[in-house]
Nucleic acid binder design. Structure first.
Lengths: 162, 162
DNA sequence: CACAATTCAGTTGTGCGCAATTGAATGACG
DNA sequence: CGTCATTCAATTGCGCACAACTGAATTGTG
């Protein structure tokens, strides 16, 4: 009785607008800053993972980033063409492809060290604010993932009958 | 002296990961729910604006959504092909194209009224939590936009010399 | 051992997001 | 009035995201 559906549709607009807009605004700032490094934002994310792990099969990379091979395969090809990464099929399991940094890829890390500072400056957020926002977002993601699993297309989970 | 650059690179990872992941998780939930309506998530955003305004030039639509014609033109073509929208060049200003809902487009609103409830259920967030998160995100977007303006590619704003 | 199910990377097709460009219409200014 | 700059929508080109599928390698089971 509180809020008729009409109002919900307006409120809903604001929520998804906000997230969408924030995501793209962030993306835009990264784009500008990463241009110096010759990386796109998703490529930067891949490099961050590799700087931590140094060698990973595509599958593991995808788990860290929540991306599948459909996205990663061409992206990794481009990183390989840029000379930052090498891909070689695993000897143990020929289905798997190991991604590893080249020397050039390792070296790029030094130049990337300045990125977080510049990003932080752009947000104008302090460490605490960042932490709170991150916690909020992670909470949201967890909830959404759970809901996505519980609600396979079509109806409510209660419809589940053998 | 507080946190060496190495740690920043790790912390930074977490921030951008969180936002990126949340955005795509949200997108995924919308995708499932909107499939019933035959809309993608960005198409839904466009329809939300049109349900509020009923008739708008592409330019205004883009300002509401922060999207340019490069994104909107093909998207609107698809909405037109789906019979939800009509596009006609303005009589007053032949450069401009007016977008207006068809009867079918107006009618779709009824079926869309259920969407916000299902989304809200998926997040598990209450109205207050949503409001706080939205405020946080808007604050972030505002800061990022300001920074994007202040920092044209290449260096700090202080470099600005005639 | 043989055969079915699974796991993995890659490909294809669709749609979004953005930069850069094009071309037409409009507006401003001398 | 004519010229030049601006404002629009549309197009092109590139990269990401994701669903669906392919094909090869591996694992599980009888």
């Amino acid at each position: 009785m509180n809020t008729p559906d009409d109002d919900w549709l307006r409120l809903d607009q604001q929520i998804c607008f906000s997230l969408h807009a924030a995501s793209r605004a962030f993306n835009g700032v990264y784009r500008v800053i990463l241009k110096d490094l010759g990386l796109t934002y998703p490529q930067y994310l891949v490099m961050l993972v590799l700087w931590e792990h140094d060698e990973l099969p595509v599958k593991k990379l995808g788990e860290h980033l929540r991306l599948d091979s459909g996205t990663l395969s061409p992206l990794l090809k481009r990183l390989e063409a840029a000379g930052l990464v090498r891909r070689e099929r695993s000897a143990r399991d020929e289905r798997s492809v190991e991604v590893r940094l080249t020397e050039e890829g390792v070296a790029l890390r030094q130049r990337a060290l300045q990125v977080p500072r510049r990003i932080a400056a752009s947000t104008g957020f302090g460490p605490d604010e960042v932490r709170r926002l991150r916690a909020h977002l992670d909470e949201l993601t967890t909830a959404l993932d759970a809901a996505a699993l519980a609600e396979p297309p079509g109806g409510s989970p209660a419809d589940e009958r053998s």
